[in-house]
Design a binder for these strands. Structure first.
Lengths: 138, 138
DNA sequence: CTGCATGCAAAATGTTTGCACTCTA
DNA sequence: TAGAGTGCAAACATTTTGCATGCAG
């Protein structure tokens, strides 16, 4: 790779958010943070990141792509808060065993089980009047 | 409801396909079948169907919405062939137990687990050179 | 007759691509 | 200098909405 000046910033912002964010969201956040960056670059960087295996991609309930930095490329299962976007990683041994079982039972092969489970996290008890930002980077 | 002339046709076509289809796909199929119907109507009918609980909605890997008539609104889990679209219904007792378990463990509530697992069904052994149409309506 | 369902076209939204420019190696 | 990275605008695909009309009740 050549520069990664902007790409580093994008990856940085992605890591800073610490949760699944869509390209537009990340772009807006970076612009708000003072970065001079284009939407296109964010899209491209995110796609490259996901392509390289450095980021997880999920399809939200709206059909939008959301990205997140990915430490281990092994298990791709998440429990995602539909309000603040916080995502808990799931070990998913039981899930994978179940998936392998039903796949075998139905004769399906090459099964890609990216379980994206949407719910309400303990920080968002009331799904009404969202003023929530949930910017904790931990 | 008033007429349901067209809506009945849409539901019919959806049932006839017997698998997950997107609005555009269904529309094209109906037009090919001689129906005089607009894309908008298909979208609206599909949305209404899903709204009423008569159809399942999934988000494909492309981010498109795919619909399918839904007999039992209880378990919403499917093993979908990414090539021909065939979908096997999964009892998913084990999955739901696992989801309930991890949700409780992480404090998530209102969890909606619509497990859409994409793979290759036994009818599509070779995921290369797809000239496949898989138009079998049964 | 009333008024909702319908359909065409345009708008809205999310994502990708073309092309010229910038900036790093 | 060379060429990949970048950004703007346009292209593109999918879905929704506005508005006039037809058909069921």
């Amino acid at each position: 790779m050549r520069v990664t000046t902007r790409q580093k910033a994008i990856r940085d912002a992605l890591e800073a958010s610490g949760r699944f964010v869509c390209a537009q969201d990340l772009h807006a956040r970076m612009r708000a943070g003072g970065h001079r960056i284009g939407l296109t670059t964010v899209y491209r960087a995110l796609r490259a990141l996901a392509d390289h295996g450095d980021a997880d991609v999920i399809i939200t309930e709206d059909g939008q792509r959301a990205y997140r930095v990915c430490g281990s490329s092994a298990s791709h299962h998440h429990l995602i808060c539909r309000w603040c976007g916080r995502a808990a990683e799931l070990p998913a041994t039981a899930l994978e065993r179940w998936v392998a079982d039903v796949s075998l039972r139905h004769g399906y092969t090459g099964v890609c089980c990216a379980a994206e489970i949407f719910g309400t996290c303990p920080r968002c008890p009331e799904p009404a009047g969202r003023g929530h930002d949930a910017q904790e980077t931990g």
